[in-house]
Design a protein around this nucleic acid. Structure first.
Lengths: 206, 206
DNA sequence: CCTCCAATGTTTCCACTGGAAATATAGATA
DNA sequence: TATCTATATTTCCAGTGGAAACATTGGAGG
């Protein structure tokens, strides 16, 4: 080897872990789940396909980290616009954020709930998921849907709300629901929610 | 296992199409989605891995046919036990059947709603899915959840019910819901459904 | 009856995948 | 300075789905 005209690329990337997760989400949004191969992600960062193993162990480990980041952004979507004075307005914005995240990042959303692709029991992933769920649980408490007075009424209200919203999002992504292509709206499944907030732009998630 | 006692295996299978779908569902139930390869299905039937192409075009075509059969069995689960006199009892049994199918055949259920794996616009698949959805729509009409009097109130009631049940099933399969491992119960998300039918055995689906 | 044809399977190949193992590099530490 | 360790590369391998050429068979027409 003789002349190295171009400045040499450092052997060590420096922040490969974060770069791989970011690259994965980019590929996911741009080319979908089928394009999300270990080699594709590595190439996107300019690294060999075995480099991720040092940081994530396996492809599943990397996908798990991507899903965890997905939950953090998911949470950001729910919090976005949910900062007003009106409690009901905040609830509406959060629920709408849940749905909007699913329709804006369908592939990432599916990954986040695919136990075949990521390790659901991973500490980082379950922590991020729990943070996201916490917002939803707060809203459910406000709604007070299960009036049975049972000791687990709160938990059941949460589960009802979560099932309703999650099912709506999933069915839309599956192309099974009739509203395919249309903009998802929380009022489609909660007509008595009865609150129309101002339109807003997506949150800036880094 | 199709152990044939006769010495000579015929060159032509005779009913490869049906056999492949059946084999696919068996593998799905026994070893999960990751084991469901074209080669595995073909080997299970005792045929080369390129034979399915004549009948299904590609792996996606085969998976689509498997999903369609899944919807037919899904419908059978909802109809099972929904033959009594009491309308509310029939409704309960059908909803519980929806959930029971998901927990009995989680991998098949996921496949049925995975647009990345099967062609949702396939005529056979969408017809089977529509048949299944029809039962749910009938129940929604009976519930009359959307009392807004809007012209699309029926469709919205259907969507609400479907979202609720589907979301509950999906979250449980994802391992995200708290009731992981527990037997799914429709009353967990519909506490006011207020009807407890007799226990029954799964339907015999062929 | 025979011939040819179209349907159905097989063989062989190829590009691609994730992972294992040995090796190279470079920053940190003694 | 010498080594150690984390990080990244290279090379290999079994497995995947699909394309293409070939083989087998049952059936439709002469």
């Amino acid at each position: 080897m003789q002349v190295e005209a171009t400045p040499k690329k450092p052997y060590h990337h420096g922040s490969l872990k974060e770069a791989l997760v970011a690259a994965g989400i980019e590929i996911l949004d741009a080319r979908g789940l089928e394009a999300l191969s270990l080699r594709a992600i590595a190439a996107h960062v300019g690294v060999s396909h075995t480099a991720p193993k040092n940081h994530f162990g396996s492809l599943k480990g990397l996908l798990t980290a991507i899903a965890a980041e997905g939950f953090r952004r998911h949470r950001a979507f729910m919090l976005d616009g949910a900062q007003g004075d009106d409690p009901k307005g905040r609830q509406y914005a959060a629920m709408q954020g849940y749905i909007r995240f699913a329709s804006d990042h369908p592939q990432l959303f599916r990954l986040m709930f695919s136990p075949a692709l990521c390790a659901m029991d991973d500490p980082e992933l379950s922590a991020a998921a729990a943070d996201s769920y916490g917002i939803l649980a707060g809203i459910a408490k406000g709604l007070d849907w299960d009036k049975s007075g049972a000791p687990d009424a709160d938990r059941r209200s949460e589960l009802m709300l979560w099932s309703l919203v999650h099912g709506y999002a999933m069915l839309s992504l599956s192309g099974s629901a009739q509203g395919t292509g249309a903009v998802l709206n929380i009022e489609d499944i909660m007509p008595d929610f009865g609150y129309l907030p101002q339109p807003h732009s997506p949150p800036t998630v880094t």
